[in-house]
Design a protein around this nucleic acid. Structure first.
Lengths: 241, 241
DNA sequence: CGCCGACTTGAAGTCGCTCAAGAGCGGTGG
DNA sequence: CCACCGCTCTTGAGCGACTTCAAGTCGGCG
C-alpha cells in the first residue's frame, strides 16, 4: 500500500487544520484505528447511521444499489476524509475498502456533541458539508452531460490534483476498472477502450493496472470538457485561505 | 400563477418549523419580497455569493453551463426553499425563474450571524445541508444508471409527492420540456416521446403543456427503477420527526 | 386569421452497451 | 521452474437507446 496513505493523511490534517478554525480530525484523535481489508464493508446502506468514520490510510468507496445489480459509486474517500457527515438518520450508502484501510470511528452522538460544544469546530463541519455538496454537483454535471472521454479525463485529473498523489510522475489509481466505471456511469469496457485511446494519443500511458503516467497534463485538462477545469480545480484546494 | 405558490409556502413554513428547532424562514421574515419574471436571473454562476434567497412564490431553477451550450439544471426550488445555503465563496450556479416568482434575499453575512447567534437555527441549517446532499446523491444515481423512462417517472413522482402539488388529481408541471430535459440529462425529444409512451400505457395523461393527470400512481412508482421509490419518498418528508 | 414559439413525430446516425473471445498477470502447486 | 488456474483487463463485432436533424402540429396572442 506504499506509505502514500500516511503522508496523505498528515497532509490532509495540516490542510484542514489551517483553513478555518480547528480540524474535525481532533474528534477522531483518541479513537483506536480499525483495520479493513479490500472490499470489506464498513457500514451498510439502510442501517441506522450510528457512526461517522475517518479514513486514516487507504481508499474507501461509497455505493448504492438500485434494481438488480445496478451499482452506483457516489464517492471515493481518501486518507483524512470524514465519512457520514451529511447523514440525518440512516446510511444512504454502503462503504467498503477499495484497498486495505485503516479507519477510525466515532458515534454520531459524540460527534454532534463535540461540534456543538466546540464553537471553532463548526466552521469546519459546515465547510465539509458544503464541499461535499459542491463535489456532488460537479459529479451531477459530469454524469449529465459529459462524454466517456470527458468523464474519464475529469476523474483522472481530479485524482492527479490531490496533493501527494503522484510519485515520480506516476499516478497511483487504487480502484479497479469496475469501480471507475460505476463511479463514472460507464462500463468497464468503455473505461478500458478510452484509456487505450488516450494512450494512443499520448495523453497518458498505463503502467500496470493501477498506475498511470500522465504525459500531458495540459491535454488531459483540455479533454475534461469543463472549459476551465484545470485552473478551477487547481485553485480549489488552495483558494480557501 | 394560481394560488398554489402561497399555499405551498405556508405548508413549507409549518413543516420546517415543526421539525427541529426554529425554521430558517425566520431569517427572511423582515425582508421585502422581490418580483422575478419567468427566465429572469436571480444570481450568476461565478459571482461572489453575497446573498441567500428564499423562494416565496413560484419555481426557480439552478443551472450550470459547460462547454458551448451544454446546460445542466442541478435543482428546482419551490416556495419555502432556501437557495445558496451550501455555498462557501461563489455561486456555483445561475438561478432563474421558471415561472414568475417572488423571492426574499438576505446577505450571507447576516444569514451566518443569525445562524451563529440562534442556537436553535443551527439544526435547521445543518438539516437543510444534509437534505440537499441527499437530493444531490439521488440525482447522481438517476443520472448514472437510470433509463429515460425511469428518469422521467422519478421526476414526475417527486413532483407529485410534494404536498399540495396536485389539484383535483391534476399535477402542475411549471417547467417546460427543455428544463425537464436539462434536469434529467436527456433531450426534449426524448422527454416528449417518453411522455407519449407513458400516456399510451395509461400511466398518465398529458393535459396541455403544463399539466399531467396521473392515472396510476402505482405504475408510476414501479417505473422509477428505484426498487422502493414510492415508500421511500413518501416517508421522506414525514420521517424527520 | 396568421404568426411564433413550444411541442410532437419521424428517420437516420452515433455513442456507449452487451456479448463473446482472448491476453496479461499473480498466485499456487506439482 | 514451469504449468495451470482464476481473475482482471483488453479487444472485437453487433446492437440498442438516445441523439440529431428535419418536418409537421398545436396553441396562444396580436
Amino acid at each position: 500500500m506504499l506509505m502514500q496513505g500516511k503522508n496523505a493523511f498528515e497532509n490532509a490534517e495540516l490542510a484542514t487544520a489551517g483553513t478555518r478554525g480547528q480540524s474535525l480530525s481532533s474528534i477522531f484523535h483518541g479513537c483506536a484505528t480499525e483495520t479493513i481489508t479490500a472490499s470489506q464493508a464498513i457500514c451498510w446502506e439502510g442501517d441506522q447511521a450510528k457512526y461517522l468514520f475517518q479514513v486514516v490510510e487507504g481508499v474507501v468507496r461509497l455505493h448504492r444499489i438500485i434494481g438488480e445489480g445496478r451499482r452506483v459509486i457516489t464517492a471515493f474517500h481518501f486518507a483524512g476524509d470524514v465519512i457520514g457527515a451529511s447523514l440525518l438518520e440512516d446510511f444512504s450508502f454502503t462503504a467498503e475498502g477499495v484497498t486495505d484501510c485503516k479507519i477510525r470511528r466515532v458515534s454520531r452522538k459524540c460527534f454532534q456533541e463535540e461540534v456543538t460544544r466546540c464553537d471553532n469546530l463548526r466552521p469546519a463541519y459546515i465547510g465539509l458539508l458544503c464541499r461535499e455538496n459542491a463535489a456532488a454537483h460537479d459529479q451531477m454535471v459530469l454524469l449529465s452531460k459529459k462524454s466517456a472521454e470527458e468523464r474519464l479525463c475529469s476523474f483522472i485529473l481530479n485524482l492527479a490534483l490531490r496533493p501527494g498523489s503522484q510519485c515520480q510522475g506516476l499516478l497511483r489509481v487504487p480502484m479497479n476498472r469496475l469501480d471507475i466505471a460505476d463511479y463514472l456511469g460507464l462500463t468497464i469496457e468503455t473505461i478500458s477502450r478510452t484509456i487505450t485511446k488516450l494512450a494512443a494519443r499520448k495523453v497518458l500511458a498505463a503502467e500496470g493496472r493501477h498506475d498511470l503516467r500522465i504525459i500531458s497534463m495540459d491535454k488531459l485538462a483540455r479533454l475534461t470538457g469543463s472549459a476551465d477545469d484545470f485552473s478551477a480545480k487547481t485553485c480549489h484546494r488552495g483558494s480557501i485561505h
